[in-house]
Nucleic acid binder design. Structure first.
Length: 441
DNA sequence: GTCTGCGGGCTTG
DNA sequence: CAAGCCCGCAGAC
């Protein structure tokens, strides 16, 4: 088991207990670590993890929470504190209860500037909800490199919804730039109803969504409490399912011509990189031509082992899980490689290698994972969207919540497809991409 | 321009 | 003294 913190006490031997009993401030940290943890994108509560020093995400001390560096006057231990989440002060909601959960800028100046901007949905003022999950203070994360391992410890429980991920925020900035660039092109290509800016939309946010954050269609109460995030077996399963979807989507496009194939992870990964016969949508598989949805989001339980060959390479690699997924943000960004946009998600080594066989972003709390796709519509050009700003998934982060996630109906888990892809048709999207959304060509 | 890590310095309990 | 916070700097992207 990767997550030592969730092992049952009775299953632990003395070494395992040592793995659990350490504190980030200890003089000596355990070095006889048998198994390192999979990187946790949304660490919450009082978690401790031991990552391999080879783990790129751990090396970068990444978190999808907006964490800023905090000086603890200890150069050996890096401390970071949570900035919370930026929300609309009007508490506006988009369709299906989607809320605005923006990622606070890490830089102080940038954050102040950010709060002067307007809500992308209702144009109302934005406000920052500070994190007070650690005794009234922000949740803190500690990182310490020691030997072959990177030790992580978090203190406190986030008492606010999750912001958009770093990658989403980065992508949004990228799209904002693209928007500005495209605005200078004399082609009047943004007049289609789907791409027109709505009155409430501020230009500063841009109108080109890049990723969708279908964390959940359920609005969190103001008393949202991260404590509800539990490490249930189902959630762990989901985490590991996410690994598969991420692995398949690395590089953006996915070729899962036959989801029931018995390709091993490496070959599967290679196929993923080669074509776009199938669009991996954070777990759901779409065929861009037929528009067929392999609706794993509807809990169709195609067992990942069937496709991955029963963990043939590494026990840590591809656990046995069904394939439920609820998110499917994607990236229509053919002009820019996924590696450029989302370097963190690109494995340095082939998946067959031990280090890269671990998931890049497992989901500890069973959270939805924001997946990006590089959809190559016949090598179409620049990225954009066919969504109205109101639908702009980029701007809306669902309040993520594992409990809600597991009570999702098929509707909520695939609404994006039903309403935006299947209803409109991917060919339509492709055409839109070509006709309306490639102003630079 | 923003993120990130580092470190000095201040305040508070 | 520890913890939290602010600030500026430098390097990277």
């Amino acid at each position: 088991m990767a997550d030592l913190t969730v092992m049952a006490p009775e299953d632990l031997d003395s070494e395992d207990k040592e793995m659990l009993s350490w504190d980030i401030n200890d003089m000596k940290l355990p070095q006889n670590v048998k198994k390192t943890d999979w990187f946790q994108e949304w660490p919450d509560s009082y978690e401790k993890h031991i990552y391999s020093s080879e783990d790129r995400n751990a090396q970068r001390h990444l978190s999808s929470w907006a964490m800023r560096n905090t000086n603890n006057h200890n150069s050996r231990i890096l401390k970071k504190s949570c900035l919370g989440v930026v929300v609309c002060s009007r508490d506006c909601s988009a369709e299906e209860g989607r809320k605005i959960y923006l990622r606070p800028a890490i830089c102080d100046k940038a954050r102040q500037k950010q709060q002067r901007k307007r809500c992308p949905n209702c144009d109302g003022p934005l406000k920052l909800i500070p994190c007070r999950g650690h005794g009234g203070f922000p949740v803190t994360n500690f990182w310490r490199h020691d030997g072959r391992f990177i030790f992580f410890q978090s203190k406190g429980e986030h008492d606010h919804p999750k912001p958009e991920t770093k990658l989403e925020a980065e992508a949004r900035r990228t799209m904002k730039k693209a928007h500005v660039a495209s605005a200078s092109v004399p082609l009047k290509l943004k007049e289609s109803p789907e791409t027109k800016s709505l009155p409430g939309e501020t230009q500063s946010w841009g109108s080109f969504p890049l990723t969708w954050s279908f964390q959940e269609g359920v609005q969190l109460p103001s008393s949202y409490n991260g404590r509800l995030i539990a490490n249930t077996p189902q959630q762990k399963s989901l985490n590991d399912c996410l690994f598969f979807s991420k692995s398949c989507c690395l590089g953006g496009t996915t070729d899962l011509a036959d989801p029931t194939s018995t390709l091993g992870p490496t070959k599967l990964y290679d196929k993923c990189k080669l074509s776009s016969s199938w669009i991996c949508n954070g777990g759901d598989l779409l065929h861009p031509v037929s528009g067929v949805l392999s609706d794993y989001g509807d809990r169709q339980t195609w067992n990942i082992n069937t496709a991955l060959g029963r963990q043939s390479l590494n026990d840590n690699c591809c656990p046995s899980y069904p394939f439920p997924l609820t998110s499917w943000p994607y990236d229509f960004s053919p002009s820019q490689s996924s590696a450029e946009l989302f370097p963190q998600q690109i494995p340095v080594e082939p998946p067959a290698a031990e280090s890269s066989c671990r998931p890049l972003w497992p989901n500890p709390g069973g959270e939805l994972y924001e997946e990006r796709l590089h959809v190559d519509f016949n090598s179409c050009c620049p990225s954009s969207t066919c969504h109205s700003p109101q639908e702009d998934p980029f701007l809306f982060a669902y309040a993520s919540h594992p409990h809600h996630q597991y009570s999702l109906t098929g509707k909520s888990s695939k609404w994006d497809f039903d309403e935006d892809m299947r209803g409109v048709g991917l060919d339509h999207y492709s055409n839109e991409m070509l006709l309306n959304l490639c102003p630079l060509r």
